[in-house]
């Protein structure tokens, strides 16, 4: 039953043009980054390695698909949540706006099944968007620029990964990004259960993310104490897969925190929806 419901919800979501905004944005932006890297990428690399070049001869090509995909993931991962909210914020509230809540509820399915199938749809959309990002940045990046070693500049060190030691890191990083985006989806889904207009959840989720990111970015004592409680602080921890050795404690902690957020938000959504008085 859930599978059929999910299939219906999935089709409903993908019949709306707004669903494709995210895919379109990624599909346009990433090739633009590729083009910029094709024209100017070597200058960026030279700038990053300028100090190293004083003492070392750097031989070989670091401007490759892996490096560009890493840069793209760095830049875009922060903005993907905004694309997720466009769909996730509409999942429940959209029914109210369209006046189809009552029709849906009167069907022989439980409210829990509705919430589950809609959440699974939101999760699938989030996963597909990250998958699309992976395909456009990594696959096209490798086709255009080839493979090679990956240069990762961290605050405490420079790591150069052998090309045989990179792909699995990307797979896990994209997997982690899906988890992070599912938290965003859950948050928008939660707000979506509270109101009857999709604009509210979309804007509210965006506002929450912006506020959390700003609090994380301002390095003052009073905000520092809040940081462990902000999910945005963990969403970007996909970068830990590009560390050597892997900080498993940090990764596991991040997965648990993000997973916890999903469970809490989904439970809250389910409770609210169970008790919701459908008036539209």
């Amino acid at each position: 039953m859930i599978y059929n419901l999910f299939k219906i919800e999935f089709l409903k979501v993908f019949k709306k043009w707004r669903t494709y905004i995210g895919f379109l944005a990624v599909g346009v932006l990433v090739p633009l980054v590729h083009l910029a890297m094709y024209l100017e990428g070597q200058n960026s690399l030279d700038f990053i390695t300028r100090d190293l070049r004083q003492s070392f001869l750097l031989v070989g090509n670091l401007l490759n698909g892996y490096w560009i995909s890493y840069i793209i993931l760095n830049v875009i991962a922060v903005h993907i949540p905004f694309l997720i909210t466009l769909v996730a914020g509409d999942l429940l509230a959209g029914e109210a706006t369209a006046g189809t809540y009552r029709l849906l509820i009167t069907r022989p399915i439980s409210r829990m099944q509705i919430v589950t199938s809609k959440f699974l749809t939101g999760f699938s959309y989030s996963a597909l968007l990250i998958l699309w990002l992976a395909i456009v940045s990594l696959v096209i990046g490798i086709l255009v620029f080839g493979t090679g070693e990956l240069l990762v500049v961290r605050s405490e060190m420079i790591i150069i990964f052998d090309k045989s030691d990179i792909f699995w890191r990307f797979l896990l990083a994209y997997g982690f990004a899906i988890l992070g985006m599912t938290v965003v989806c859950s948050l928008a889904f939660f707000f979506s259960s509270l109101v009857e207009n999709a604009i509210g959840p979309i804007i509210t989720t965006m506002a929450v993310i912006i506020i959390f990111i700003i609090i994380s970015a301002i390095d003052v004592e009073i905000f520092r104490s809040f940081k462990p409680y902000l999910f945005t602080n963990y969403i970007l921890n996909w970068k830990e897969f590009f560390n050597d050795p892997l900080d498993m404690n940090k990764i596991i902690n991040s997965v648990l925190v993000l997973g916890g957020h999903i469970i809490v938000l989904l439970t809250a959504t389910a409770i609210i929806f169970q008790k919701k008085d459908i008036l539209s």
């Binding site: 190293l52 070392f56 031989v59 070989g60 090509n61 070693e149 060190m157 790591i159 150069i160 052998d162």
Partner: peptide, 28 residues
């Protein structure tokens, strides 16, 4: 502050101090 795998390369030298290095991958 640097982590890099061991690399293989081919080194060409010609007097007085000409150097050319060929490497399949990145080498420092």
């Amino acid at each position: 502050f640097i982590k890099m795998p061991e690399r293989e390369a081919k080194l060409y030298f010609k007097q007085p101090d000409n150097i050319h290095i060929e490497s399949e991958g990145f080498a420092m």
